[in-house]
């Protein structure tokens, strides 16, 4: 009833392949769809939510194809990424309108429940245009939940939220997942989802690269080595000094400077400054070489 199933799904825009032969099954509970920007997360979510036709492959939600099938929205709720809601309406009017569009028998009851679930009762009578980013996100979730869907899709739900709002949202998603709903959300920031339990699907360059348990990924994240490029007045001396420190696991002299691998980001950054001053070395440049999301994800994939 609430399983999302992708079999060999691809999507391309002209010559550009955005999603390449993705096969996955997403069942009840919370699932994170993670990957760097442009990896194809949104394309996958748009296809699941029926707003993009797969170029190839089959995609079903609860056994029914979602493309060109508005009936799917009886069991599916969507929280789109874009922050555009009917800003002239109040939160309450927006959720109530959604309930009416679903032709719910007890619209008022459903509206009250949905608004309470996202903790927006106090602000429900205010116009959405006066809401903060986090409040807009929550009222969008309320609208997506008003018909009590078995499947809830959220595109970058933590974008622009402050840490408190983020925790609140994570708790809500965990709760909805524990109730047996299928919750799928996308995110490009691994740290954002640290508190969530459940599974993740990692998408890199349009392909499904890995899937697994949040906790395992989190362990890898904290213990992963960091690579820095350092240029200084005396690279050889600096390298010799650095290799003596426990936070440093490797040093290499390259044409562009010193490549340093550190196991502890914070400790290395403190020590490199202290050591270079002690030895009279002038630091010219210190760059984290692999902090791009792509490299983080590719590290995770390799492990």
């Amino acid at each position: 009833m609430s399983t999302i199933e992708l079999t060999g799904v691809s999507h391309w825009y002209g010559n550009v392949v955005a999603v390449n032969d993705v096969t996955m099954t997403i069942g009840p509970g919370v699932t994170g769809l993670l990957g760097p920007n442009g990896a194809g997360k949104s394309t996958i979510l748009h296809m699941i939510s029926g707003f993009l036709e797969p170029s190839r492959g089959t995609l079903t939600v609860g056994g029914a194809p979602s493309w060109h099938n508005p009936g799917i929205y009886r069991t599916l709720g969507l929280v789109p990424e874009r922050d555009s809601v009917y800003a002239v309406l109040t939160g309450l009017e927006f959720v109530r309108a959604t309930a009416k569009l679903h032709k719910l028998a007890d619209a008022d009851g459903a509206v009250g429940r949905a608004i309470a679930m996202v903790d927006m009762a106090a602000a429900a009578d205010r116009r959405i245009s006066t809401y903060s980013k986090g409040m807009r996100q929550r009222i969008k979730v309320a609208a997506a939940l008003v018909h009590d869907p078995q499947v809830l899709l959220l595109d970058e739900p933590f974008n622009g939220m402050d840490p408190r709002q983020r925790l609140h949202m994570m708790d809500l998603l965990d709760k909805l997942g524990a109730e047996g709903r299928t919750i799928l959300f996308s995110s490009h920031i691994l740290e954002e989802v640290e508190r969530l339990s459940g599974t993740i699907q990692v998408v890199v360059a349009g392909r499904l690269a890995a899937s697994g348990d949040f906790r395992a990924i989190r362990r890898l994240m904290t213990s992963r080595p960091h690579v820095f490029m350092v240029r200084s007045s005396d690279d050889r001396l600096l390298g010799a000094t650095l290799i003596g420190r426990p936070a440093v696991t490797g040093v290499e002299l390259t044409a562009k400077g010193l490549q340093v691998r550190a196991s502890d980001y914070g400790a290395f950054c403190r020590e490199v400054a202290v050591l270079s001053r002690e030895h009279g070395i002038r630091l010219l440049e210190l760059l984290p070489a692999d902090e791009s999301l792509e490299s983080v994800f590719s590290y995770l994939l390799a492990s």
Binding site: Y73, V85, K140
Partner: peptide, 15 residues
Amino acid sequence: DDGSIIHLLATPVRR
């Protein structure tokens, strides 16, 4: 243009 149509279309209302 502003994408708010999605909230209308993500319901079973006939197009």
